[in-house]
Computed example of a mutant assay.
Amino acid sequence: MNKLILGRYFPGDSWLHKLDPRAKLIAAIGFIAVLFVAINWQGYLLLILFTLFVMRLSDISLKMYIRGVRPLIWLILFTVSLQVLFTAGGTVYVNWGPITISEYGLINGVFIFCRFVMIIFISTVVTLTTKPIDLTDGINALLSPLRLFKVPVDDISLMLTIALRFIPNLLDETQKVMDAQRARGTTFGEGSLVEQMKKLVPIIMPLFVSSLKRAEDMADVMEVRGYQSSGPRSSFRKLTWKSHDTLAIFTMIMLTAGLVLLRQLGHL
């Protein structure tokens, strides 16, 4: 559980650490969007190479990213298996009622697997190289035009950042509860499905209580420090857009252009 690194921040001095949080958020959202532009193996190869390049720029080892995606691998494989079993097209290898394993199903399954992994990697890069407070400022700045429509931008950005920051805390707490249950003789991952579900009850209840207590403590701290969601606010930290931030956005534009070109060549 505590191996999931999504939502954690790793201090560093890499090129990505120095980027403006707004540039990283725009680039990450743009990357996730262009993932759906690729329709052939050439496009996915370009995306994979770009993802590895970005991960290398973070100065964080590849093993760290792989360890971070392991807890989600079963969810990814479950989604991929549904795509493989219920997508027909091309050469059919297995046909058993509604279940069909075909050429298109296998190809789409591989593409979806790569898509999921790349989304997790890029999202993890953003959180690993951006302080939570900077992430809040970046989200707040990007959503600021919505203030014209009376949208509570400050509340939304704060909730998103807290939710993201709670992920590693919740996983660490889960690991502690599981270790405590193991010390009492509980064995996880054995027995029937019903027995395994019963073993989760002693984990869910303490986590639920702990989450409520943590949320209450945070609310008390914010109230003591005078936080108010309404009214004008000032900030000690000022976001500054620099030339390397523009370079990051330009790189995303070039990546999008390359994927569109590969898509057009695939239709020829």
Score class of each variant (00 low, 15 high):
3 K>H: 14
4 L>W: 03
4 L>C: 06
9 Y>H: 15
14 S>F: 02
15 W>R: 13
23 A>M: 04
25 L>T: 11
28 A>V: 15
35 L>Y: 07
39 I>H: 12
52 L>S: 06
57 L>T: 00
59 D>W: 09
75 L>V: 13
79 T>G: 15
84 V>Y: 04
93 Y>A: 05
95 N>R: 15
96 W>V: 13
107 I>N: 05
111 F>G: 10
111 F>A: 10
113 F>L: 15
114 C>V: 14
117 V>E: 04
119 I>N: 06
123 S>C: 06
123 S>L: 11
130 T>S: 12
135 L>C: 02
141 A>R: 12
156 I>G: 09
159 M>W: 04
159 M>Q: 10
159 M>Y: 10
162 I>S: 05
163 A>E: 03
166 F>D: 03
169 N>L: 14
176 K>N: 05
182 R>I: 09
186 T>Y: 14
195 E>P: 00
196 Q>A: 00
199 K>E: 11
204 I>D: 06
204 I>M: 13
204 I>H: 03
209 V>P: 06
210 S>C: 03
211 S>L: 15
212 L>T: 08
212 L>Q: 12
213 K>S: 01
218 M>S: 11
223 E>Y: 06
223 E>K: 07
226 G>W: 02
226 G>C: 10
233 R>T: 10
238 K>W: 06
240 T>N: 12
244 H>W: 08
257 A>K: 04
261 L>A: 09
264 Q>S: 04
267 H>G: 08
